[in-house]
């Protein structure tokens, strides 16, 4: 059962380097990683192939990094897909399962998926 973490970073590219190095260095089972931002703060959502307890331990480890202002396990994920269909660009949003289903049921020329990310105001942080 995958688990997701939301990590909020300050510190720019070096902070991101340190985070990705730590994910790799500690051999965290990363299935997906999405970057987003709110102002200067970078928000990283990491989907891990592990149980919740292990994910909480990884969150504790990541929260010890100096560039990480907050890190925690998230329950609610959101995904946005920018879809090109009939010559127009549209946005589809919802849970990752909903977006997956929508894309399967609709004919699209191309899609860019932004996420999954922690749902604003409902994440762990």
């Amino acid at each position: 059962m995958p688990s997701a973490l939301e990590i909020r970073l300050c510190g720019g590219l070096l902070a991101l380097n340190r985070l990705s190095m730590t994910l790799q260095n500690k051999r965290m089972p990363v299935e997906g990683l999405t970057l987003a931002r709110n102002g200067a703060e970078v928000r990283v959502t990491v989907v891990l192939d592990c149980e919740g307890e292990t994910a909480r331990r990884y969150a504790a480890l990541l929260s010890g990094l100096e560039d990480v202002s907050e890190a925690g396990v998230v329950a609610d994920l959101e995904e946005v897909a920018l879809v090109r269909a009939d010559g127009r660009c549209e946005a589809v949003s919802g849970s990752p399962e909903y977006v997956e289903r929508w894309l399967a049921e609709n004919e699209v020329e191309d899609a860019v998926r932004l996420g999954p990310v922690a749902r604003p105001g409902k994440g762990a942080c």
Partner: peptide, 14 residues
């Protein structure tokens, strides 16, 4: 050196 010491330092500054 900040890059190469990322895994072996608690933190690094440039």
């Amino acid at each position: 050196v900040t890059g190469m010491t990322l895994p072996v330092t608690k933190h690094s500054f440039l």
